[in-house]
Design a protein around this nucleic acid. Sequence first.
DNA 1: GCCAACGTTGGC
DNA 2: GCCAACGTTGGC
Length: 152
Amino acid sequence: MNYWLFKSEPDEYSIDDLAGEPTGQGRWDGIRNYQARNLLRDQVQVDDPVFFYHSSCKQVGIAGIAQVTKAAYPDPAQYDPQSPYFDAKANTEAPRWYCVDLRFVKKFENPISLARLKAEPGLAAMVLLKQGRLSIQPVTDAQWNTILALTK
DNA sequence: GCCAACGTTGGC
DNA sequence: GCCAACGTTGGC
């Protein structure tokens, strides 16, 4: 089992959107970066816990927790010419892009801001702080626990 | 396979 | 809206 941090712009898809999914699950699609794709396809497993991170918004930071309910499968949006995530070079024999399904677990009463994460000495090695642009990131056990402690 | 040009992400 | 960081594209 691995811990993760997934980034989303809340204007596009927020933790409240996930919490409000009528089926109880949401699809994490639209990943169009190879490094993120590889992590999603090869390492993200069912039941892995995920920090839900809000980027490019008023309250940048970790908004809550989700959990993987379905491991990687080809992202249907890559085949849909109407979708902004359409990829003409993708085909069903050789999918390029993958997605997973998530369920909502909890929303933090107080989101943990990026500034707070930066201020925490134990988190200096976080991928988020080292390689800010990666949208699917591994989180170590120690980092996970350190961050959870900040919510209390 | 190098690398310049270009596009995107994302914090501020 | 600016701009730094960095990923991707494409000519050679």
